[in-house]
Nucleic acid binder design. Sequence first.
DNA 1: CTTACGGCCTGGGTGC
DNA 2: TGCACCCAGGCCGTAA
Length: 319
Amino acid sequence: MPELPEVETVVRGLQAHLPGRKIVEVRFGKTDFVIEPEAIASGLAGRAISGVRRFGKFLLVECEAADSAGPRDPAAGAATKRAMGRATKGAEEPATKGAEENDALLIHLGMTGQLTVPPSSAPVAPHTHVFFALDDGRELRYTDIRRFGQMQLLRNGERERVLGALGLDPLEASEKEFSARFGARHARVKALLLDQHVLRGVGNIYADESLWRARIHPMRTGDSLRPEELRRLYRALQVTLREAIRLRGSSVSDYVDAEGARGEFQLRHRVYQREGKKCYRCGAAIRRAIVAGRSSHFCAQCQRAPRKQKQIRPGRSTR
DNA sequence: CTTACGGCCTGGGTGC
DNA sequence: TGCACCCAGGCCGTAA
């Protein structure tokens, strides 16, 4: 399941291949998961790629400014301006802001989406539905068994509308911002971690792993967390996500990076999909329960369940 | 407004 | 061998 660390790994892989390349042609297989495929085909053919970046679990393949006016046939563009701003380092600026935002291809990998850059002559893997032929004889290919992914063209000025509501990137948020957001909410902490409007990029694997590391039960509510618990969770999230990125993500099912290689963080999972196995910290059996509509794995010994009282709070108040 | 929940999308894996 | 069923993540509608 591509979550923040997996998407980050794919982005880094694509950054090594795509910037500077020109998209020669776009072809589709099934398009039921693509928004306006014709717009993608006509809008990106002939365009040069300037960069690739991550925004939460989304990938953005950015184009250089369309040379001149002709939205028709950009045949002229012999002078393919080299990507000036190189890949750069980690600190990414908000993808929704920025003075000039050029057209970009927005991609969400869903559960089984894969992006690779094989030679055009390479055999096509089953369930490959989008092909971006490049000017160096290779293709950026999108493969997605379940087609839970999503793809759309973001034109100039559309980023804020499409991505603006997403929450903070967990690796960029400060402890203060994190605590303020979580501490003010009455929803279960597991639901808050998965809510992309609170934090962008965390999914089921890293929510469970972080909660275990922080020794917090997934059913606890955000506003029940003591300051030190909020701090522990913040730290656990950071450490877990960074470690996962270092190990190139978790390959629990179909996930592979841009080179087609599996990640290794699944070997470090402490609770995810370890129901019945022993807790690495205390030896108790890892349990699984549905929280926030998702399978949640935790150690009932290390992560104490909250008191049952699920009573209806007296309305008003808050403030 | 906030929260909880059920359903939907698709297809691989599993168990009978 | 076949087949029903479960499950995954995001999103949306509905209800409290």
